[in-house]
Amino acid sequence: MFRDFLLPKVGMAAITIFATSAVVFGALYLAPGDPVTFLTKGRPADPATIAAITQQYHLNDPLITRYQLWVSGVLHGDLGQSIMFRQDVTTLVGSRMPTTLWLVAMASVLIVTVGIGVGLFSALRPGKLDDSLMLGATLAAAVPIFVIAIALVSFFSIRLGWFPTFGSGESGGFLDRLKHLTLPAVALAFAAVAFVARITRASLREEMDKEHVRAARSRGLASSDVVRRHVVRNGFAPIVTVTGLTIAGLFVGTAIIEKAFALNGIGGLLIDAVSAGDFPVVQAIALLMVIVFILTNLGTDLLQHYLDPRQRRAVKE
C-alpha cells in the first residue's frame, strides 16, 4: 500500500510543489508591482532610498540567484521576510491562517450538507421541485461571488441586522466567529453548493439507472436500503472527489470574499502581496494553496481507494 500507492503520489506532490514555486516565482517577476514602488508608497523617492531597498531585497540580482536564495532559505525552514510587513512570513501567514481556515471550514460544511443534501433530494424526488432546484443551481453557479456578497450584506446585515457587515470575529468567542463568518461562508460556498448539488444529482441519477440497482429492487429490498446500500454508496466516489476539489478550490475564492467582508485572511493577504511584489509572501501562500490542493487530492484518492474495491485490486496487482 505505502510503496505502491502512497510513495509515487508523494513523489509527484513534491515535484508539483517544486514546479509551482518556480512558476510562481517567475510569474511574480514578470507581473506588475514591485517592492520599490510599494515601499515608497508610489511617491517620488530619492535615489538613495531606492538603492537601499534594491540592495536589501536583492532586487537587482538575476532571477535565478534570487530563486536560489529563496529555495535554500525554505530548505532551512525559513520562508523569508515579508517586504510589506517586515515580518517573518511564517508568523505573518500563520496569524492570517485561522480566519481563512474557519471560513473555508464553514463553507465546506455548507457545501457538504446543503450541496450534497439538495443533490440527494433532487436525485431521489424527480419532479417540479427538483427541476426548479436544478434551474436555481444553474443560475446560482453563474452569479459573481462579490455580487452575492453585496446582496447578502444588504439584506441580512443592513436590512435585517442579523449579521455584522465585516470582520472575522477573531477576538470574540466561538459564537462571535460563527456570526461574523456566516455571510462570508455563505457567499463563498454559494456557487460551490450549486455545483456540488448538480454533480451529486447527476451522479446518483446515473447510479439509479444501473442494472444492479434494478436487480436490488427486484429482490424486494426496501427503497431506503436500495438508495443507501447501492445508489448512494456507489455514486459517492465521484461526489467525494468533486466535493474535495471544490473545497480545495475555495482557498482561491477566499481572496474576493476576504476583501468584501474585510476579513484579512490568507486570500486578502495574497492580493495585497501580489500588488506589492512581496514575493516571499506570495510564494508562501501559493505554496500553501498548492499543498492544500495536493493534500486534498491525495485525500480524495485515498478515500476513493477505500471506497472502490476495484481500485484496491488495481494497486495490488
Binding site: 442494472e211 436490488a216 429482490r219 446500500r229 447501492h230 471506497l307 474495491p309 476495484r310
Partner: peptide, 16 residues
C-alpha cells in the same frame, strides 16, 4: 426471483 442477463452489471461491483 429475477436472473438478469449480465451478472457483472446485476451485482453491485462495490460490495462483496
Amino acid at each position: 426471483a429475477t436472473i438478469f442477463q449480465d451478472p457483472r452489471a446485476a451485482v453491485n461491483p462495490m460490495r462483496t
